[in-house]
Simulated scan of single mutants.
Amino acid sequence: MEEKETGSGRGNSEERWKGAIVNLTEMASNLDSLQKLLLKKAVFVDEETFAKASLSSEQARTIKVLEQRVETLERELDAAISAAARARAEKRQAEAGQKAAELRAQEITKELENTTKVFELHMEELRAKQEEINKRDNEIKLLEAIIQTLGGKESGSTTV
């Protein structure tokens, strides 16, 4: 098993080494080019000038970070203002809905009160009619009793 690995692995290993050497050669060439470029373009300054330049550079980076933070806060503020405006609109809509519901409740209450009054009037009318019916019923019974009494006397007087 080791022979197979070394046989096929050796070809892959050599290719890898060749690729790595080519990469290292290219990197060395790139480093040489970069070093030459730096030597041509490099500016040498004293420590005080370098310190001031470093401070300015640091301040510029800080300013850039702060500007980004301000932009982020402005976006958050705009979003909060929009959310507050939506909340106010929803509140007004809810208040209008509540007002409409209250008015509807008042209308329904008035309808119920009116219906109750009409019902009470009908009940009074029914009671009055019931009393009238009872009164007439009593009159009818009285008349029937009178008729029977008179009828009984007539039958008794005709038979005598």
Rank of each mutant, 00 (worst) to 15 (best):
N12S: 09
K129C: 04
A83Q: 13
L39W: 10
L39H: 10
F44W: 12
R75P: 00
R69F: 03
M123K: 15
D46G: 02
I63A: 03
V45Y: 03
R136V: 07
K64P: 00
A84V: 08
Q93M: 09
E76W: 00
I140T: 03
K41V: 06
S13D: 08
R16S: 02
D137W: 14
F44G: 02
G11Y: 14
K129M: 14
A96K: 10
E154A: 11
G97K: 08
L38K: 10
V22Q: 08
I146S: 05
V70K: 01
K4T: 05
V45I: 12
E47I: 07
S82N: 13
A42N: 07
A80L: 09
R127Y: 11
K41L: 10
L112P: 00
E125D: 13
D78T: 01
K129H: 13
K64Y: 06
K129Q: 15
E67D: 13
V43T: 10
A51K: 15
E95A: 08
A105V: 00
A89E: 14
Q35K: 13
L39G: 06
N138T: 13
L150V: 04
Q35L: 10
E107H: 07
L143Q: 04
S157T: 06
T49Q: 11
G97Y: 01
N134I: 14
L24F: 01
L31N: 03
R104Y: 04
L34I: 05
L121M: 13
Q35W: 06
K141Y: 10
K40R: 12
I146W: 12
L38S: 07
E113D: 14
G97I: 01
F119G: 09
G152A: 08
A87F: 05
N134V: 14
L66M: 04
L31T: 03
K36Y: 06
R127M: 11
I140H: 02
S29P: 00
Q148C: 03
T116E: 14
K41Y: 03
S13Y: 15
